[in-house]
Design a binder for these strands. Structure first.
Lengths: 233, 233
DNA sequence: TTCGATTTGTTCGTATGTATT
DNA sequence: TAATACATACGAACAAATCGA
């Protein structure tokens, strides 16, 4: 029963019945609505809280999770200068283009070949040191109304923009890392490295709670300056 | 109360009152022993189950978790051949030495400089391809009776050996990744790479449930053949 | 094969504690 | 201070899995 209720609540969330940041009805009401006891309801909600979908606040209510800049930074930004504490990067945009998805992109994002996508290139600095060039690919269809002004005008992280403006939550990501020679002149120049220097290449696909792929991001990291941190639990 | 009981159970486990694989007393007995209701006890145990410390089996009992080879492989071995499924590696040992900890090693393992340690070098293959050279450092003090025969004679993963023979559970690990030029002749030869080829360098510190550092492992990965997978939730 | 004893899993209802407004 | 909402705790009943007689 708690599993059924959990799924029904998820469906409500997907259908946008309850909006981001909004409070759900209180536990007693919800239990009555679903025809179960409060204990069982709490179990269902408890799981969603653990997954980060809902947030419970004692004395206030249960809310649809709204992730902060800190959350996204802490969770998804895995780079830091060698041996130093993690810091917020500064972002410099190089291009924001409309084009069609190639094979790799359409495979990763689960869209058809040649679907319209946005292709974005950013250069990130930490303490004035260029640490990574990010190439971002997102499907146009998922982000109706998106344009360069909106993208550059965001007041927080990119994932926050997805969440707040488009209702899309990045819940998890899959990174594949390898070491490659930096043979691309443009990237080498951005990172202020000589051609042929080893760089960390990261291919990330980010997903929603429903495991729907949202973003393909390829990063080239200046490995002289920064390291990738991975915590395994 | 449930938090207090959880901590008391953890203490029992640390003190070895309940051994690996053993069953705990049943819920009713435990609740009575701790002077709490079964519901509260279940909450305490439930958290430990979630953390992977205990395992509950309906109809049988609650057991001290004993992690399988599959668990350790799935959780802690993050390498796979490019674009292929994860496979078990074959391990080839190059040396097993006794020596004293240097600065980096003593810092990482939280032991004093020049403490006795074991230093081990392995070469791992996947499908006949050499994928990584691992340098492993563990404190002698944590592994009384450890020697080359025991280490090489293990019938499962290294972490399983720590668990089954020494009662030490690797619960989480911290990896720091960077791309470097492979300038070490020996490592290059092991990986069948030319000197100067970019390789993925991973520095891992592994910890017990109590966040005590157990192992420092430095890996050099043949990035032509293999990739590092990282899942972020 | 069946049956009963044991053990964890689920659900219910209620009471009390604690944080917020 | 009172009302509201989540947090914790208790106890009981029944379901489901396991194991041995």
């Amino acid at each position: 029963m708690w599993l059924k209720v959990k799924n029904r609540i998820q469906d409500f969330l997907n259908d946008g019945i309850w909006q981001v940041g909004e409070a759900l009805p209180n536990e007693a009401e919800l239990a009555k609505y679903f025809g179960i006891s409060m204990g069982t309801l709490r179990r269902a909600i408890g799981e969603l809280v653990q997954e980060g979908v809902l947030v419970r606040k004692q004395g206030r209510g249960t809310f649809v999770a709204e992730h902060s800049k800190e959350h996204f930074m802490y969770h998804f930004f895995r780079l830091a200068l060698r041996g130093k504490e993690k810091k917020y990067p500064l972002v410099n945009n190089y291009y924001f283009q409309s084009r069609k998805a190639n094979q790799q992109e359409s495979d990763a994002l689960d869209i058809s070949l040649n679907s319209p996508v946005f292709a974005i290139q950013n250069l990130l600095f930490i303490e004035e040191t260029p640490v990574t060039v990010d190439n971002i690919i997102i499907s146009k269809e998922l982000f109706p109304g998106m344009n360069k002004e909106i993208f550059l005008g965001r007041d927080s992280t990119i994932y926050n923009l997805y969440q707040n403006r488009f209702g899309i939550f990045i819940a998890n990501a899959n990174d594949r890392l390898s070491a490659v020679r930096c043979d691309n002149r443009e990237i080498a120049a951005h990172l202020e490295l000589e051609l042929g220097t080893p760089v960390l290449k990261i291919v990330r696909v980010s997903y929603t709670y429903q495991s729907k792929p949202v973003e393909l991001r390829t990063s080239w990291v200046n490995s002289n300056a920064a390291e990738y941190y991975s915590n395994i639990f």
